[in-house]
Design a protein around this nucleic acid. Structure first.
Lengths: 239, 239
DNA sequence: CGATAGTTTGATATCCTTCAAAACCTGTGG
DNA sequence: CCACAGGTTTTGAAGGATATCAAACTATCG
């Protein structure tokens, strides 16, 4: 059972033994939390970085009218806010969507790593840029696609990201978000989310049982939403 | 007439003379382009950084069905893709919305500056993080607000950003985007954009004449959309 | 003064929301 | 092992926001 961050970064650069052990040593303070727990809140000043090892988390904002909008999913191997120390305070919150195992990394440790291991620094940069690219793609998803296509798009993305850290064997993965969570992510109500899921199931594009989502034919689901994989920058070889 | 990037960064850190002249020296290759020109296209490999000096530009993607979605506005003083060299290729395009004056900065020059001037590096970091924060806020804007509020939100943001570089005197600024551009930004048709603008004018929340937008009472417009300024991180003092 | 890009208008169709209630799970304590 | 509690999913009916299509109008610029 490899470290998911090692696995993720390996899809971008070749890590040597020293790199791997440095990354693994980031995880000396590992904690288990229950679903719904906040990791950091809007207004807080970040002092640590979180690395998700198991479970899902999300970035979100709560609007004045009380509704919540989710702006990102953090999956195993995802590191949050590597560089956020520069800002005075968080403009959004981070919470767990499921029970989770999280490594808590002190800011100094993180900065040290970046300074001493240029190759890792580069790989972390890559991860940060991909996060931003995902944000842009989500914006397009919300702006230009109807609910049905939007859901399809999100599922394909989740599948690809989870597969990159070995968590989507057999064309399926554990869906650790509720329909309400998904709705808050895609800007639709949970009611409409539900009906949309039923439609996708009806078409045989997805299957689900006890919280596990199966995508029998990825290509078909990609076609629904005209999924373009380039924004995930998963294809090796760079500079 | 100060350099807009100097002006922008100054709202985050105090720059000394050397910093200022270093930033200014980035602009030794300044070009004028006509509206609609692409600066860089999806699939290209970035080799230079652009700094907008006058006019507006945008990041956008074109979907398979031919429609365009705008994911960011670049205003004077905005630098694009300071760190993008890490990625293999662009996952979106950059184009001018208006006639513009642009400084073209070679990658090496940019990297050198970051290496030699930590304070500037930090300030550029800040700018990058703010860009990302804007992206998140836009996502919320699209996901959770009706068209009317969305437009109000965008206008308040543009006003604040332009004011930060001295381009919004007298509660007004040049609106260098068409209604179709605005629609493509907010995920609504240009038809609906038009009707929404009429409503905002009708309520006296905005005024416009020969391409200049006036916001007689910012606070009122902010109230419409419950605008929370924190995501722009304009308030000084950090570490 | 004509050409072209941008704005405005009207009528109709559709997607999605809202509100409310019922049905379904899953874990917990008796 | 059953029963209950709380969260989650599912269903229905009706209303509202926004899209679509097509055409007219208005600027602006060479």
């Amino acid at each position: 059972m490899t470290n998911p961050l090692v696995q993720k970064l390996s899809s971008f650069v070749d890590l040597d033994e020293e790199d791997v052990s440095r990354v693994e040593s980031l995880c000396y303070d590992v904690r288990r939390f229950k679903a719904k727990r906040n990791l950091i809140r809007e207004g807080d000043r970040p002092e640590v970085v979180f690395l998700l090892l198991e479970g899902w988390a999300c970035r979100y904002k709560v609007l004045p009218n009380g509704t919540r909008h989710i702006m990102a999913y953090l999956l195993p191997g995802d590191l949050c806010d590597v560089h956020v120390f520069i800002l005075k305070e968080m403009d959004h919150s981070l919470a767990l969507l499921s029970d989770a195992k999280v490594a808590v990394i002190p800011k100094q440790k993180m900065l040290g790593l970046i300074e001493q291991r240029p190759k890792l620094a580069r790989a972390l940069w890559w991860a940060t840029l991909v996060d931003e690219a995902i944000l842009r793609e989500w914006l397009v998803n919300m702006g230009k696609r109807p609910a049905y296509d939007r859901v399809a798009h999100l599922f394909v993305e989740l599948y690809l990201r989870l597969r990159a850290v070995g968590l989507a064997p057999d064309h399926s993965f554990d869906l650790l978000a509720t329909q309400a969570d998904l709705g808050d992510t895609l800007g639709i109500t949970s009611v409409h989310m539900n009906r949309t899921l039923q439609k996708l199931k009806g078409e045989g594009l997805i299957q689900s049982a006890q919280g596990r989502l199966r995508i029998p034919d990825i290509q078909r689901l990609k076609n629904v939403t005209r999924f373009e994989e380039n924004y995930l920058h998963l294809n090796r070889r760079t500079a």
